[in-house]
């Protein structure tokens, strides 16, 4: 502290020096410039015209996606009718790209029963460019904005109603595959409905909108934007409510409960039985054979 005081004091002695103004000016410029470089790209991209973004997206698409989806996103069919190497992307919209690429599912590491969520391969700008390019191929759902799935602007009562409504929609439409706790579930032939607990609201919304992989497509016609918002609100509310009963054991239902009953319950009780039987009435250490 004293050192700081001393150096501050020493600096203070020079505050009226001939170079002081210049130094302050330089520092100011450095700060402004630094801040500008941090913030500038976002602004610069916004300024970028749609046409430029689409062109950039096409470049990326040709390198990373066209091998399966075709050079114009038209999809590549195999010799077997009805089978494709990659489906056509005309009309899937920006939301599908944002979901698939934003969660790392695309580009796919290998074909298989399920495309798993993995590390994201593209930066945010690149994903935006790819989305813009695919959106330009044909009309499709756009990337939802945060207002679409947040409960901002609703009264406390309306929020509660939204959560309750969302819970019922979730139990009716989602739990059959994704499980009551959003833990996911198995699908035929090695596929699975992934865990939705802990997934970002934007991606849940996009998944409902675009129906990725084996999932149904919940268009705005059969599940209105408000209903989608409510489902997300319900899932969010589950995350903020505490686990009332204690450790949930993965939220996968009675199978895990049975496992714990045997391993923890019977395991410990048999251990206790061994312990009790190993102790006799003897208080002295001289061994007495019973």
């Amino acid at each position: 502290m004293r050192l700081l005081n001393r150096s501050a004091g020493r600096l203070s002695q020079h505050r009226r020096g001939p170079l002081a103004g210049l130094v302050v000016l330089l520092l100011g410029l450095l700060l402004t410039g630094g801040l500008y470089t941090v913030l500038a790209p976002a602004q610069a991209q916004k300024a970028e015209s749609d046409a430029e973004l689409v062109a950039k997206g096409r470049e990326l698409f040709l390198v990373g996606c066209s091998f399966c989806h075709g050079q114009n996103g038209e999809g590549i069919s195999t010799a077997r009718p009805g089978y494709q190497i990659g489906p056509s992307l005309v009309g899937v919209g920006a939301a599908a790209v944002d979901f698939q690429v934003g969660t790392g599912r695309m580009p796919m590491a290998q074909p298989g029963a399920q495309v798993p969520r993995k590390e994201v391969q593209y930066s945010e700008e690149e994903i935006a460019a790819l989305a813009a390019y695919v959106a330009s191929l044909g009309p499709g759902p756009a990337i939802p904005s945060e207002q679409d799935y947040s409960l901002e602007g609703l009264s406390e009562e309306e929020r509660e109603e939204a959560v309750v409504r969302g819970g019922q929609i979730f139990l009716t439409n989602c739990t059959a595959c994704h499980n009551f706790d959003g833990s996911g579930g198995a699908m035929p032939q090695g596929g699975y409905a992934p865990q939705v607990r802990g997934v970002e609201p934007k991606y849940i919304y996009e998944a409902m909108l675009t129906g990725p992989q084996a999932m149904d497509n919940f268009t705005n016609g059969n599940l209105s934007p408000e209903m989608k918002r409510d489902v997300i609100a319900y899932l969010q509310s589950l995350e903020t409510t505490p686990e009332y009963g204690g450790f949930g054991m993965g939220g996968i239902g009675p199978v895990a409960e049975g496992l714990f009953a045997w391993l923890v319950g019977i395991g410990s009780l048999v251990g206790f039985a061994v312990w009790i039987a190993a102790h006799t009435t003897r208080t002295s250490k001289d061994k007495v054979e019973a």
């Binding site: 139990l171 009716t172 739990t175 059959a176 499980n179 833990s183 009675p254 199978v255 045997w262």
Partner: peptide, 13 residues
């Protein structure tokens, strides 16, 4: 509700 079901519907062990 007979119209609903959840993945991981199992009986007790």
């Amino acid at each position: 509700d007979p119209s609903k079901v959840t993945a991981g519907s199992q009986p007790d062990w």
